[in-house]
Computed example of a mutant assay.
Amino acid sequence: MFIPDIYDFEERAAIAEYEGGLSRREAEDLAAQCQGFRDAEHYWQWLADYVLTKRIGR
């Protein structure tokens, strides 16, 4: 699996919310699914686990 692109996630979610009329939760779920995750909760959990175990920014 690749490291998720947080900038792409945020941009897609914002567009889906404001241009697509989705709720923030729906928009974030869609953005997460575009990167291969089940939903936004899965996306954020995976990213948090990666940061903790791989020590990004060290």
Rank of each mutant, 00 (worst) to 15 (best):
V51F: 15
E11Y: 11
E26P: 04
Q45C: 11
T53Q: 00
R38V: 08
K54Q: 09
L52Q: 09
R12H: 10
I6H: 11
A40N: 04
G20E: 00
L52E: 11
G36E: 05
W46D: 14
D39Q: 07
F9Y: 14
Y18L: 03
Y18R: 04
E28Y: 15
F37S: 07
A13T: 01
S23G: 09
D29M: 06
A40S: 03
D5I: 03
A48M: 13
R24M: 07
R58V: 10
Y7V: 02
D29Y: 01
D29N: 14
P4W: 10
D49W: 00
M1L: 14
A40D: 06
Q33P: 14
A27L: 07
A13I: 03
C34T: 00
E17N: 04
I56R: 03
C34G: 12
A32N: 08
M1D: 08
A14H: 13
R12V: 05
G36F: 05
I15P: 00
E26F: 15
D49H: 01
E11Q: 09
E11L: 04
F37E: 06
I56W: 05
E10Y: 12
G20Q: 00
Y43G: 08
V51P: 01
Q35R: 06
G57K: 02
Y50C: 08
R24E: 08
V51E: 01
I3G: 00
T53W: 06
M1G: 14
E17Y: 14
I3Q: 02
P4Y: 10
R12C: 09
E19H: 13
G20A: 12
E10Q: 11
E10R: 09
E10P: 01
A32G: 13
A48Q: 13
D49E: 12
D49S: 03
I6E: 09
Y18N: 04
Y50T: 04
K54P: 01
A27E: 12
Y50S: 06
I15N: 00
E28Q: 15
A16Q: 08
P4S: 09
L52C: 11
E17F: 13
G20T: 04
I3L: 03
D8V: 01
R55N: 10
E41P: 00
D49P: 09
F9P: 01
E17W: 11
E26I: 05
L22D: 02
C34V: 03
E26N: 14
D8F: 01
L47K: 07
S23R: 03
E26M: 07
R58H: 06
L30V: 02
H42E: 13
C34K: 04
R25N: 14
A13W: 13
L30D: 09
L47G: 02
Q45L: 07
H42C: 07
R55S: 07
E28V: 04
Y18D: 00
R55L: 07
Y43L: 08
T53H: 04
